[in-house]
Design a protein around this nucleic acid. Sequence first.
DNA 1: TCCGAGAACCGAAACGTTTTGGTTCGCAAT
DNA 2: ATTGCGAACCAAAACGTTTCGGTTCTCGGA
Lengths: 349, 349
Amino acid sequence: MKRRVTILDVAAEAGVSIASVSAALNGRPGVSEATRQRIAEVADRVGWIPSMRGRSLSRKRAFTVGLVIQRDAHVIESDPFFAGFLGGVESVLVDGGYALVLQVGESRTATLDRYQRLVLEHRIDGVFLTDIEDQDPRFALMAEAEIPVVAVNSAPGCPFPSVRQDYAPGLRQLLDAILELGHRRIAHVTGRSGYIHSGQRERLWRETLRSNGIRPGPSVSGDFSIQSGSRAADWLLATRRTRPTCVVCANDLMAVGFIARASDLGFDVPGDLSVTGFDGIEFGAYTRPRLTTVSTAPYALGEAAARSLLASIEGQRPDDVDIAPTTMLLRESLAAAPGSVCSSSQQGR
Amino acid sequence: MKRRVTILDVAAEAGVSIASVSAALNGRPGVSEATRQRIAEVADRVGWIPSMRGRSLSRKRAFTVGLVIQRDAHVIESDPFFAGFLGGVESVLVDGGYALVLQVGESRTATLDRYQRLVLEHRIDGVFLTDIEDQDPRFALMAEAEIPVVAVNSAPGCPFPSVRQDYAPGLRQLLDAILELGHRRIAHVTGRSGYIHSGQRERLWRETLRSNGIRPGPSVSGDFSIQSGSRAADWLLATRRTRPTCVVCANDLMAVGFIARASDLGFDVPGDLSVTGFDGIEFGAYTRPRLTTVSTAPYALGEAAARSLLASIEGQRPDDVDIAPTTMLLRESLAAAPGSVCSSSQQGR
DNA sequence: TCCGAGAACCGAAACGTTTTGGTTCGCAAT
DNA sequence: ATTGCGAACCAAAACGTTTCGGTTCTCGGA
């Protein structure tokens, strides 16, 4: 077992005190350029890398931030948001010398426990809050703990620094396009209730239709999983009377599930009815028909969130950040309403 | 700013030394049951939770393990393996009081750097090695660092404790089924070269066909991305002469890409040709046709890997563990070869 | 009554950094 | 020659645990 090389070894080898070594390699004043060079050279030669353990204790910093994602194992498997988000977060953290500890909570309370433990054990210096709920219990916890927080896609007026990508522009474009194409019976499949983005998307759907003089079609509740999209198709396509000509799903997964089930039931998308998603996952370009959706940028969101969090940790009060808003991604699954004036089916094949 | 409550506060409040507090709450002998009770009660009342920082330094343990996933941001977005794997890992770690730091490396060297840094900074007590390559440079690094390692789906004879799910049974079932259905021109779309699982899958495909007296059809190289599956379709379906009746893809994503492109080119799957995947991602059940594939268990693999790693860290030499092997998942995308005796098309719709 | 052996408890060191509060030194100004 | 003053450097404390090596106490046995 090799003994670990510490700052003491470097100091001894270079013939200086450990204080000088620390000052030299952290770029603090009080050490001449000549000795700084020498110390750096020695440190390099003996292969010294400061131990995070000692450093954390001394600096009262963990140099680590936390993220707890709350998904049951089933949904998470195909959730495309986090991979991109993580990539963005990581790319920024690594430059700052920070690491990310990631946990998954299976339930609401489990998630809360994980956060609490990470914070109270002083494992982390800051946290990301994603998938924010209407009265999110994590807010109180974090306020109590006085730990830096960045909220991702939170509601306006959130008490913590936030980064957001405005969902509205893309969704509005989408709804406009839908109306333009002659659809009048427009249903919605919601996300899991309680989440702020679920509410936002449904509200915008409802209000846009109302302000266009259209009674919002049925709204069935999903939970962001493919399966729930599939179930929604069963509900919405059951009776001819209530059948919509267009279904706006709160995310792409549900849209995929919906289309798959609709196809089983003998419906042609977009010939018989159009279906749209939200997120812009890569898969959407490979379904047939290709999925019309709203394109989001999880990677950029992750970058912004990480930057904001690091700033918070450095003691700044970062402004809220808005990255470039969402945009519509028009593809085959949305077409003219059946029986409408300009009804030209444009399926694949 | 509230002052942090430390072990000193507990000791003072309970009227004992800090050594006793530590012993009491860590279940070490040398403290009477009565005082143990009292200390526990006091600790609870003042809300003391041992700081990981002090604890890490003293115990020479970070109580953290590391995983670096190597994907460029593009591929990772839709990679379904890691989410499940992470879930399994996490569920075990949390019980052991461990946390996971997760990083993503965009390139081979970046990944290596991340691992190196995590280890040298003493941030982690052990690492997971996934997506193992043929001569994986991480092996040498970890051996040099003398840090606990668990290799996931490594080749037999791997110098580190390993957890595996045997890919062969499921894949063999699949190939048998393909042959049974009368296919004779059977192509393969490989995974990214250099990875051990890419090689394994291609080798089994090749050898099984040979031993059945069939010349393995063309093998085109992919990289596990949807896009590469799509490109493979362009290659394989270009000329009538070389066209296979069945295409075995090294993972589900490529199969999805392949099917999508094949459909664009006017081919009917499985009427004109069959396509199979590998992984058993949830999406496969929602494509039309549904994807025939080999079902894997990333969650269980994660659990086993985490258990093994924790055992290593505790100083044991865990045996290699094999979780239940893969099995075939027969769905619509595989059907009888066109023109074969029992050719009954069974598409969806 | 004395001795010896555990049990219970404690003080202090150790872990590896950063940071604080000096001390020494050289040099310019007086 | 003395003083003053930065620059360079250092010893020691601090961070919050765990653990090592004692010390005291109690109690049973001789």
